[in-house]
Design a protein around this nucleic acid. Structure first.
Length: 497
RNA sequence: GACCGGUUCGUCUAGGGGUCUAGGACACCGCCCUUUCACGGCGGCAACACGGGUUCAAAUCCCGUACCGGUUACCA
């Protein structure tokens, strides 16, 4: 039997980082086993589902490279089937009509209420305490016929327990006494989550359900539905959660953009790097390797190597440099430094285009220069943004000077104000503006002035690139070329800042 | 509250009775390299939640406690 898994987002928001990892693990498992990766949109809650949300989720999945194998299933399209299923269970006496009228309250009120009520309840609460559970069939039929509104609830056994072997957490058990007679169909006729999920998973022939461990209690309920339906259940694998620092829930309301996948794309992350980072959050191959290509992840992935404890996604909202997890940033830098130039160049092109720094010549006459520039400056960059920010001076005359760099590398050595234009003149006289020639000129110059090479090079770096740090300075000079180098060394702009 | 999970360096993790004076990665700190800097190389700091058992031997198995998380809807 080939494996079939599904990623089932509900389109009520952006693609959450935790959902992205769930999608990743589903994808890796499918590809590892030669199976299918499907997408099902859980849009039963029509009130909260939006088109934009769906578009942004699909966008995020596409960016991460998770192509789905079959047509996307929309859960709302199957509502009729779900209804028929609920009615069937009612017919068979496995479910019953609940005529209790629905309370009409706002979602936040309900949430608060549930929390309050739950805190007061102990285990002695009888989950079967519903007068309609034992209402004679004739009576129930009669009231329904009279047009009385009702919800359909599953009749959960009074004694016994539900159990399943989780691929990650092992044997899971729950007493029936702790499970309420869950509602399958709302009184307005809309199917509810647990029913819809089970029906669709059966319909889609899903072999493995891989989802967050916040669904474990749902799984017990869903198993009850599988059993009532007489259907075989899939293998379940629950994933540990990704938490915010301090072990709290990671939410957009509290933590902002950091939880949204698109924030990473917009911040200049490489999809492969982020995927790599996500894969190692809750899973490891059990070896001392950190960088994995998608192919390697697929080859090495297995459910039994998934961790059972929740992971903390580490970041510091008050520190600009630590806006997201250190390791994620490091990994992105690692990818930028080491990935094939062929792969990086198009990404840089896009970044420069977005920032209006792109020139068509970079794809034509200046292709070689452009590629060697990217190769030179990528060495110390962390994100694609750095190409248009720290690296801006390579692509435009309109760049800023780093304040600290000016102070530390320029103004601390006032002589540089006259020296650097002098150095420019020296450069002007050079025949071929090569690495060796440039270096020799700088060395000569420093001897003349009896100063350290570092002082001159650091000052030069500020005037040429606006930065305090970067690749080998002589290479930078060579890469910029004689004209720009001379012009910028003579400029007084930085001195006047 | 109840039910269900979890707990190894600050963070991600390896380890599943002896090979653990607990390994790797990120971050941090030092040194070296680079006649300059946030690259690179080398090194350092730093963890088995606690208490009982079982065993010749426990980070690893069992029990309890603490703490953290999940769930507890006619939401998904």
């Amino acid at each position: 039997m080939t494996t079939r898994v599904r990623f089932a987002p509900s389109p009520t928001g952006y693609l959450h980082i935790g959902s992205a990892r769930t999608a990743l693990f589903n994808y890796l498992f499918a590809k590892h086993t030669g199976g299918k990766f499907l997408i099902r949109v859980e849009d039963t809650d029509q009130q909260r589902s939006t088109e934009e949300s769906l578009a942004s989720i699909l966008d995020g999945l596409k960016w991460l490279g998770f192509a789905h194998d079959e047509k996307i299933v929309f859960q709302s399209d199957n509502a009729e089937k779900h209804r028929v299923t609920a009615l069937k269970l009612l017919q068979e006496g496995k479910a019953y009509r609940d005529f209790t009228s629905k309370e009409d309250r706002s979602i936040t009120d309900i949430k608060k209420d549930i929390a309050d009520k739950a805190r007061k309840q102990g285990r002695d609460k009888d989950m079967r305490d519903n007068e309609y559970r034992v209402l004679p069939k004739e009576e129930s039929d009669k009231r329904a016929k009279n047009g009385e509104r009702f919800a359909i609830r599953l009749k959960v056994a009074t004694t016994g327990k539900s159990s399943f072997e989780d691929a990650v957490y092992g044997l899971q058990e729950r007493d029936y006494a702790d499970i309420e007679d869950l509602v399958l169909l709302r009184s307005d006729g809309h199917p509810l989550y647990n029913l819809a999920v089970v029906c669709d998973d059966i319909e889609m022939n899903i072999s493995h359900v891989i989802r967050g461990q916040d669904h474990i209690t749902n799984t017990h309920k869903q198993i009850l539905i599988y059993e009532a339906l007489g259907e075989e259940r899939p293998t379940f694998a629950h994933l540990p959660l990704i938490l915010a620092p301090g072990g709290k829930k990671l939410s957009k309301r509290i933590h902002g953009e950091i939880v949204s996948m698109t924030a990473y794309r917009d911040a200049g992350f490489i999809a492969g790097a982020f995927r790599n980072f996500l894969a190692l959050l809750g899973w490891s191959a059990g070896e001392e390797q950190e960088i994995y290509s998608l192919e390697e992840l697929i080859e090495k992935f297995s459910l039994d190597r998934i961790n059972q404890s929740n992971a903390t996604f580490n970041f510091d909202a008050n520190n600009e440099r630590r806006w997201t997890d250190d390791k994620a940033i490091w990994m992105n830098a690692e990818y930028i430094r080491t990935m094939a130039l062929d792969g990086l160049v198009p990404l840089v092109r896009e970044e420069l285009r977005n920032e209006k720094l792109w020139r068509e010549e970079y794809d034509d006459d200046e292709k070689q220069w452009f590629e060697s520039t990217v190769d030179l400056i990528r060495e110390r960059f962390y994100t694609l943004k750095d190409f248009s920010e720290q690296g801006r001076a390579f692509f435009s005359e309109d760049f800023d000077y780093d304040k600290n760099a000016i102070e530390k590398n320029l103004k601390k050595h006032p002589d540089l104000r006259t020296w650097l234009p002098e150095l420019a003149e020296k450069f002007e006289g050079l025949e071929d503006f090569s690495h060796d020639e440039i270096f020799a000129a700088v060395k000569d110059f420093c001897e003349e002035k009896s100063t350290k090479v570092g002082v001159v090079l650091n000052g030069t770096r500020v005037l040429l690139t606006g930065q305090g740090v970067g690749p080998s300075m002589v290479s930078v000079i060579e890469q910029l070329g004689k004209d720009k180098t001379v012009m910028r060394l003579k400029s007084q702009v930085a001195w006047n800042e």
